[in-house]
């Protein structure tokens, strides 16, 4: 665990020095929200649609930023030094921690901006939404991390990432959209346990599969 934390701290420090992901992600969030606002104009859109659009922004933000942890190592050629020094479990854990922090930071910004700019986005059961948001972020970060490791070895990294991530993240996104809708309706927490259990199970399966597969992905 100490080794994984060392890798996480290195990635965080590297990100602060190089701004490899943060700047482009912030710009992406601002541009996407602006485009949606311009597209809507004076039209009145349904409440549920705002809930769905939130997850569209979250999905594409993850797609544009979370691959960089592995892609930057591959592009700069530092991956070999890492392979020589760290076990695959250390690398996956460290990169997962970094992606989790990046995902949470970006999604807090998205949520704040979204709540301020979209009047129709009103959550009647905030605790349900926050529980789903927490589980959803973990799910997106875990799936995105292992997909990033796969695509970092490929030639067309940029286009391959969302293509590969979409089918894997689809069940998660559909459940998150459904849970957001329930939060907007004010559905009580205990009536939403099935959806939350699906999100929790998705995370367990994805994290377990990542650790099982990563050894093969990381070598060669």
């Amino acid at each position: 665990m100490k080794q994984a934390i060392a890798l996480f701290r290195k990635d965080l420090s590297s990100e602060i020095r190089t701004r490899y992901a943060i700047n482009s992600l912030l710009m992406f969030i601002i541009v996407t929200i602006s485009v949606i606002l311009y597209a809507i104009g004076q039209e009145k859109i349904s409440d549920y649609l705002t809930g769905g659009l939130l997850w569209v922004i979250v999905f594409f933000t993850a797609m544009s930023g979370l691959s960089r942890t592995f892609v930057s190592e591959e592009e700069r050629g530092t991956v070999m030094a890492l392979q020589l020094s760290a076990t695959p479990e250390t690398v996956l854990s460290g990169k997962f921690m970094f992606n989790l922090v990046l995902m949470f930071s970006m999604n807090i910004i998205i949520l704040v901006l979204y709540s301020l700019l979209f009047e129709a986005f009103v959550l009647k059961n905030l605790s349900l939404f926050l529980a789903a948001y927490l589980l959803g972020n973990i799910g997106i970060a875990s799936a995105s991390t292992v997909i990033a490791a796969i695509i970092s070895k490929a030639g067309s990294k940029g286009t391959l990432y969302p293509v590969l991530a979409f089918p894997i993240l689809l069940p998660l996104m559909l459940t998150l959209i459904e849970t957001t809708k329930m939060s907007m309706d004010g559905t009580p927490f205990d009536e939403s346990l099935v959806e939350l259990a699906v999100l929790g199970s998705y995370n367990v399966v994805m994290i377990a599969a990542s650790y099982l597969l990563f050894d093969i992905i990381w070598k060669d």
């Binding site: 190089t18 020589l84 760290a86």
Partner: peptide, 29 residues
């Protein structure tokens, strides 16, 4: 067990030499 040095091995340019060695030692355990 293994130490390798070669021209194609790349370290982190955005860190100092000492930070690089310190990081790789920590991550190696």
């Amino acid at each position: 067990i293994i130490g390798l040095a070669s021209p194609y091995l790349m370290l982190y340019d955005e860190f100092t030499a000492e930070e690089n060695i310190d990081f790789f030692s920590k991550v190696r355990g």
